[in-house]
Design a binder for these strands. Structure first.
Lengths: 211, 211
DNA sequence: TTCTCAAGTAATCAGTCGATTACCACTGGA
DNA sequence: TCCAGTGGTAATCGACTGATTACTTGAGAA
């Protein structure tokens, strides 16, 4: 219908660019259906290439998923780092309070549904040997960043992560589809996304175009 | 090699009991691998019956998963209700503060890994038409309970749910396996489970029997 | 005792999916 | 210009899985 989707022999492209394109497509697909629910063929179609090419590019479906997780974590930490960097000058009183900046950065990451949802799917598959190890390492990497680089206290990290997991869940459950019809859903979303509710609703394509 | 697992023609049983047994097994399997990752055969083996019987009992795999979600929500709300009921008398000052009681009830539910993890898997599959609808309805049911029956404010529900989602994630990711080796994991778990860390570690079977 | 229905299985099928193989076509340097 | 390597596909295979069918067995009411 729209965005990423071709059909013909797929215009030639440098492998690195194609890889990034496939990773982006895979992130979307894994985010929607999880590791087991996603198929390499769905990823291939979303990326506009053939299924065997996707598999050969990463070796196995599992390796592809791990690549998606790694890329998502890189993006997450990257966004956090720029938020942290741009936070200092804008803070005249000198004392540390990067919560706002990092929170906003996180909220913006929600724009790519697949990114945080793929991570979330990975988190929940902790029983899987390889995926679990990757997920734990990534989660702890984020923890350490918040604790050490961002200067959060243990309680602050804890609160920040809890907030993040709730947001991920609300996006995953597509709570926004009930925003207009269920008062509880509306209140919950308004509370969880103080000023961002409209923004989130829009990018979920759940709202009529509205005036 | 322990708990639920038989082999021979499965001793005869009343359908209702068998159904509960299968639901318990399915909860464990879905909790570990998610909806798509779990197989009806794995559920059957865990319940000690044949695979066709599992399917015929619920019609489809999806119906089985929905039954698991419904049962999990019933248990969750049931545990909340008893916690809320037993909370009144123990509170001499009269003012409302059921947070402790409900939090403890939730922590105890973590003992059944599958219960909250199956829910979590359902939550994240919000894009699926049927599962998503069931998950949203259940989530909102919990929200309303906390808001109306437990008397939480919108902010309190929000905080309580965030905490819950983080706990679910920590259980799903099996963070406890890194408790002994990674200081960050230890700090995170100690912060998230103030007094319950040891308890959680034990029931994940991740700790050596310890003195 | 007998008869019937509920509890349960074995066998098997059709669709799906990840992976493999063999092949094709462009592009850029010698 | 040629040719080698890279970017890509078509065809297909084997394993897995959810579902279906047809059959078996035990318990309890008449």
């Amino acid at each position: 219908m729209s965005s990423v989707n071709e059909q013909a022999p797929a215009t030639r492209m440098k492998a690195e660019d194609r890889r990034e394109l496939v990773l982006a497509a895979a992130t979307a697909v894994f985010g929607e259906r999880g590791y087991f629910g996603a198929t390499t063929d769905a990823v291939a179609k979303a990326a506009g290439v053939s299924q065997p090419y996707v598999v050969r590019m990463f070796g196995t479906k599992e390796a592809l998923f791990l690549a998606v997780l790694t890329r998502a974590l890189d993006r997450l930490l990257g966004a956090f780092r720029v938020a942290l960097a741009g936070d200092g000058p804008a803070h005249p009183d000198g004392s540390a309070a990067p919560h706002r900046g990092l929170g906003a950065a996180y909220a913006e990451l929600l724009a790519d549904r697949g990114l945080l949802l793929s991570l979330m799917h990975g988190f929940i598959l902790g029983s899987d040997t390889e995926i679990g190890a990757c997920a734990r390492a990534g989660f702890l990497q984020v923890y350490r960043f918040l604790r050490e680089d961002a200067g959060f206290s243990a309680d602050e990290v804890h609160e920040f992560l809890a907030e993040g997991m709730l947001l991920n869940t609300l996006v995953g459950i597509r709570m926004a589809v009930d925003y207009d019809t269920d008062p509880a859903a509306r209140e919950l979303l308004d509370t969880a996304l103080p000023t961002k509710a409209e923004f989130l609703l829009a990018l979920e394509g759940q709202r009529k175009p509205q005036a």
